[in-house]
Computed example of a mutant assay.
Amino acid sequence: MPSFSTRPPVLDLIGQTPLLELPFRKERLRIFAKAEFLNPSGSIKDRLARHIIEHAEENGMLQRDSIILECTSGNTGISLSLVGAAKGYRVKILMSRTASIERRNLIRHLGGEIELFEPTQGYATGIHLAQQMAENDSRYFLPRQFENPLNAEDHERGTALEILRQVPGQRVDAFVSGYGTGGTLTGCGRAIKRAHPSACVVAMEPAESAMLSGEMPCCHGIEGIAGGFVPPLVLSAPIDQRIKVSSEEALTMTQRLAAEYGLLVGTSSGANVCAALQMARMLGPDAQVVTILCDRAERYYSTRLFEASRHVDAFESSSPVASNSVGMPTESVLCRS
């Protein structure tokens, strides 16, 4: 009989993503972008999901009948569902009704259960609901992604060290990231600052909801970041500067990354690149500015990111099929013998 490893192989696909050098010829600038959309579920959140679940297992916090319960805009829910499926745990995700339908479908496809809520107070609504559910049922395990120090720790010991090994000359002049939970910004910021004390750690946030800049939370179109409150993890991030990016700027850059670089990424990635280019412009053409490409584009098909494509689909669907002289369709003709 063959011997089988007890570790699910899909977990070994997490991390060690490439660092891409992106030349922006029109701007005469370049930046470096960590391709986190290449993680197995399609986002950077695979890292925290694996780390938190494996830590819970090692410390006896998970039983075979445990249910992993988390509030998320979607990416963490997809990642927890992937890890849960691989390890045999039930996963229940609390999601805002405003999250894209593709994220819900991916969670369900991986066996996760979903409960939708009205985000009257942003993420805080779902976080409170998760805490109430856990108080009433001991089977629930809460990863607590917004406050769990393991989230930042994984990026500090993993993502950031990968960046420092991959960047030319192991030099980082600035690190730019938005924040959903704050784990990437805090963890990578700490490690990069430790290696390069003069490096600038930059928090990107939506111009319409620039809470770190003292503004009130408001609606914006950059899904997955700035969810209506400042997460506890962000409060310990070594932030030197804040850059605002509008939803429109993020959308335009995301479409440009696809059209000019072949990078199928989500809107938060476009926003990160916008902010990184601003930093590169400030620091000069030789500066090494690093940012994150957070997730893949497919989970945004129902959003404005793919609006133009949907209009083309609708037009083609409504157009009559061209026919030849005998009334047969002129394309996609399948002949069977």
Rank of each mutant, 00 (worst) to 15 (best):
F306L: 15
F315D: 11
S302E: 02
Y261W: 13
F229D: 04
A86V: 14
M61D: 13
A250S: 07
A152R: 15
A152S: 15
G270C: 09
K26E: 13
Q170D: 09
E249L: 08
D154P: 05
Y261K: 13
G122H: 15
T267P: 10
H220V: 03
M1F: 07
S198V: 06
T159K: 08
M328G: 04
L277M: 01
I243Y: 07
D154Q: 15
M1H: 11
R256K: 15
L106M: 15
I53F: 02
S41K: 08
D295Y: 05
F146A: 04
P40A: 01
P285Q: 15
S323Y: 06
T252I: 09
I127W: 08
V230A: 08
Q121V: 08
E331S: 10
D65V: 00
T291K: 00
D173C: 03
V201E: 01
I93D: 10
L305C: 07
M204Q: 11
R64A: 12
E205S: 05
L116C: 00
I53V: 15
L251E: 07
E298Y: 06
A237I: 12
D173Y: 05
L11R: 08
P168N: 06
M282D: 14
I222Q: 07
C200W: 09
T330F: 02
L29N: 06
R310I: 10
C71R: 05
V245A: 02
G327F: 04
S96T: 12
L48M: 14
A99T: 15
Q241S: 13
L251Y: 05
T17M: 01
S302W: 00
A275F: 00
M253I: 14
L257P: 02
S198C: 02
S323A: 10
N148G: 04
A130W: 02
L264P: 03
L233G: 09
R108G: 02
M216E: 13
P217A: 05
H220T: 03
L235D: 11
K45A: 12
L38K: 14
M95N: 13
L110N: 09
S100P: 14
I52K: 02
S177W: 01
A49Q: 09
C218F: 05
V202Q: 06
M1L: 09
L94W: 10
C335V: 13
A195C: 02
G189A: 03
M282N: 13
A297M: 15
I14F: 09
F24Q: 07
E147D: 14
L110E: 06
E248C: 04
L293W: 00
R104C: 10
R139V: 12
D137R: 02
P329E: 03
R103E: 09
F175T: 06
I114D: 01
I14R: 07
R157G: 07
D12G: 05
A134W: 02
T330D: 06
E21H: 11
N272A: 11
A33G: 08
T181E: 03
S269K: 08
K45M: 09
Y123D: 12
P18W: 08
I243W: 04
C188M: 03
